[in-house]
């Protein structure tokens, strides 16, 4: 019966779409973002400000 065979084939085909699913649910990786670009989030930006923020903390947060 080609009708039934087609239906089964369609079901198998649509179920096989699920193989495209991500196994890893937690997508977020540091500095990696899939949406709009955020300049602040990048590795370069973080490296650029690292020293500045360290100095800021050492002057601002310590008991002088």
């Amino acid at each position: 019966m080609p009708y039934k065979a087609m239906l089964v084939a369609l079901a198998v085909a649509s179920l096989s779409l699920l193989t495209a699913c991500e196994q890893e649910v937690v997508f977020h990786e540091p500095g990696v973002y899939k949406g709009k670009h955020d300049e602040t989030a990048t590795q370069e930006a973080a490296e650029r400000r690292q020293e500045q923020l360290r100095e800021r903390a050492m002057t601002g947060m310590t008991d002088r």
């Binding site: 540091p30 990696v32 973002y33 949406g35 955020d38 973080a46 490296e47």
Partner: peptide, 21 residues
């Protein structure tokens, strides 16, 4: 928060700040 978000709108900056869209 980032793990349960249904629309996956969270991200982390390279120096570990959790932000969202």
């Amino acid at each position: 928060c980032a793990a349960v978000c249904p629309v996956d709108c969270f991200y982390t900056t390279a120096d570990g700040i959790v932000l969202h869209d």
